Simulated scan of single mutants.
Amino acid sequence: MITTKFIAIYFLSLSTILELINCDNNSNSNVVTFSPYKNKSVSNVTTIGLEPRPKRQSTNGTCSLTPMSTEGPYYLKDVLERRDITDGKPGIPLNLTINVMDSVNSCKGLPGLRVDIWHCDALGVYSGVGSLSGRGGRRSGFRSTITTSISPVDRFLRGYQISDSIGQVNFQTIVPGWYPGRPIHIHFEIYLSSGKLLHVGQLYFDELLSTSLETIKPYSDNQSKRVPNNVDRIFSTTSGHKTIITLTGEMTSGMNSQCGIGLDLRATVPIQLVGGFNGGGGGRGFGRRG
């Protein structure tokens, strides 16, 4: 059987742990090796079992403050608290663990924070959104609108969790697809228990993976033009290279990623990061807008 493996350096030292936790792939010790899985379909992508969480690692030491990014236009407030957010959507399974840490207090894990994530499906569709417009048609190059039949009450590939006693949450999802004008990414937001918005960010994927997805179903059915990371304005202006996640595992059985977010509990999210195209609302907490 042909498989595709991501090979990453495992937890051999404290410095390696902290590199992995901080989502920073600039160091040569944190290189991901990828072999294209060309012209093959993923057969077991419709369901994701709830596997045990990865072994928890100590995060004592030093870590950097994770850069913020724009919220984008497709945030929705009324989502479920849940671990499995797939709702049966097909795609490469992704077991995503996020550690939230106090970057100014020895990377101490932060319990009791709400972590929201959301992203599009393999075809570039967000739940609760009726259409997306932009540079569609990878082959045509013309501006187009992707019209969907998604119900406004659907919430697939959206959810939140409350960080546990060591500041960790875990989501079962899929590797996202893409939509016109953006690279592959996952949105996330972190809130204090009071409801104050503490951090807005985006997680990105290695360009080798992104390119090879175009040959793998169901991603190969996506006709939108994908923008590479280094061409994307948001990626370039918000230090997106620092939030490229490291993946391990096999594409036929599922990928894993453990990533950490360094926070400053005194921070205020800039209002320009959370307006999207639906209006402002920075810092107003869980119910700030629909």
Rank of each mutant, 00 (worst) to 15 (best):
L18E: 11
E19Q: 08
D24G: 03
N28P: 00
S35A: 11
S35Q: 12
P36I: 08
T46H: 08
L50V: 09
E51H: 10
R53A: 12
K55C: 00
Q57T: 08
T59G: 02
T59E: 02
S64C: 09
L65A: 03
E71P: 01
P73D: 10
K77S: 13
D78S: 07
E81N: 15
E81Q: 15
E81L: 15
T86G: 08
D87S: 09
D87K: 09
G88D: 08
P93G: 08
N95I: 05
N99Q: 10
V100D: 01
K108T: 14
R114L: 06
H119A: 05
D121P: 03
A122K: 03
G124Q: 06
G128E: 03
L132K: 08
S133R: 11
S133N: 14
R135C: 14
F142V: 10
F142H: 09
R143N: 10
R155L: 09
R155M: 09
F156H: 13
F156S: 14
L157V: 03
R158L: 13
Y160S: 08
Y160M: 06
Y160T: 07
Q161R: 14
Q161C: 06
I162V: 15
I166V: 14
G167Q: 04
F171I: 04
I174C: 11
I174D: 11
W178V: 02
I186Y: 04
I190E: 03
H199C: 07
G201H: 06
Y204E: 12
Y204C: 08
F205I: 04
T211A: 08
E214G: 03
I216H: 05
Y219K: 02
K225S: 10
V227K: 11
P228M: 10
N229D: 13
N229H: 06
N230E: 10
N230V: 10
R233W: 09
I234V: 12
F235M: 03
T238W: 13
S239V: 04
H241E: 11
K242V: 07
K242M: 14
I245K: 01
T246D: 01
E250D: 13
S253N: 10
M255T: 06
M255E: 02
C259I: 12
L263I: 04
R266Q: 15
V269F: 07
P270C: 06
I271W: 12
Q272C: 04
Q272M: 07
V274P: 01
G280L: 12
G282Q: 09
G285I: 05
R288K: 12
R289T: 11
